[in-house]
Amino acid sequence: MSIDKDTVKHISKLARISLDEKKISSLSKDLSSIMKFIEKLNELNTDKVTPLTSIINTSLKSREDDVKDGKIRDQILKNSPEKNEEFFVVPKVVE
C-alpha cells in the first residue's frame, strides 16, 4: 500500500508532528517503501494463529498497593521547560 501525501498529513496530525510540503513528499516516498516491505506478511495465512501477547512465560507479580515515593514535586518540575511555582506552564488552552 502506498502512503500518499494526504495520508502523511493525516498521520502526522495524529502524531502531533508538523511537516512542510517538501518533508511530506519525501516521507510519502519513504513510508511507501517501508509499507511495501511490510506487506510481505500478507503471503502468510494467519487465520488460525493466536497473536502473541507475552514473550515470557511468567505471570505478573502482585504487590501491596502502597505509596512508596511521593513528595518529589521539585524533582519532577526540575526539568520543565517552563514552570510557575508548582505548575507546568503551557500556552493558553481555555479563553
Binding site: 508538523s18 526539568n79 521547560p81 517552563e82 507546568f88
Partner: peptide
C-alpha cells in the same frame, strides 16, 4: 515539550506540541 526536554514556540498548545516534535 511540557514536562522535560526541548520545547519550541507555538501560538496554541497543539502548535507548541507539533513544533516541538517536528
Amino acid at each position: 515539550g511540557v514536562k522535560y526536554g526541548h520545547r519550541s514556540k507555538g501560538n496554541n498548545l497543539f502548535e507548541m506540541y507539533e513544533n516541538t516534535r517536528s
